[in-house]
Amino acid sequence: MEAFRVMVRARTLEDKLANLYKAGGRLVGGVYLGKGQEAYSAALGIQLRWQHDILGPFIRDQAARIAFGEPPLDPMRTYFGSVRGPMRGRDGNVHRGRPKDGLPAMISHIGSMVSLVSGMLFARRMQGRLGDAVGAVTLGEGGTSTGAFHEGVNLAAVEKLPLIIAVTNNQYSYSTSNDRQFACSDLAERAKGYGIQGRNVDGTDLIQCVQAFDEVVRAARSGSGPQLIIGHTLRLTGHGEHDDSSYIPESVKKSPIGRDCMLIAEQQILEHAWMNDKEIAEWKNTCRADVERMVATAMKEPAPDPFKEPWRALSTSELCEGQWTV
């Protein structure tokens, strides 16, 4: 039920972002959404504890971020470029984070967060304060083709780190379909080659996702080393909101992989009587009202001021070369 609530929150927020993008003029830069991946993403996020575990999210993990505990105003502030957001206008949209709280800010280069999250775990272990913390890093299926992914997963396996590598196979990497991305029939089988555990899950099915991540995160916490998990679903939106994804055939959209995890989750919630229609409707209203408030707040906040910006890339200010700051 918690995961479902997170899903609704994420979908509401992202629908708003999509509308703001289409309306134009307000948001800084592009918008990247996780529509169709909320079940899988939320199911991972609810297993992780803020300031205890680590989450290195990819671009479609609004749900995991919410569940993990990212401060609620962070997304809107970052999309609006508010100086009060964690990135202060220096970076935007999904490239946001709070590394000191266990939420590193992704760089765009796909695959490069696998080793970074591994390094965070590695240091904590070396410092004797890892405890039962785990780290999770998420990628799309396209990300599994990078050298960085291979190096990162192998290194995590060699170092026996409590790392969950959560891949979402949403059938498309931007416009590229899986037959041009990899030649194996089952990505989870790659785990064997790394000497780690791997499994698949239906990413459209919330209950299955929650069960799978419960097991996978438990395994990582209890010292079974890195865990590879592949969730199968369809990206129900463009690569970014600039993309109409007209390259995805209707037949794929209508196939079981194209089911909307939100609708399935709602059915599951009702079937188990965890919430009734009225409660669900109320929750959706609450989420909508919250999102409107976030927008109202973030919109009013100051944009970064180039004249107040120190323009320094080093923390040691005396080593910054002054002459460039004319």
Binding site: S112, V114, S115, V117, S118, G119, M120, A123, E151, E159
Partner: peptide, 14 residues
């Protein structure tokens, strides 16, 4: 790639 990535993650953690 992963060696440097690991080092950066470790630096975040002090």
């Amino acid at each position: 790639d992963a060696m440097v990535g690991l080092a950066i993650g470790a630096a975040i953690e002090g």
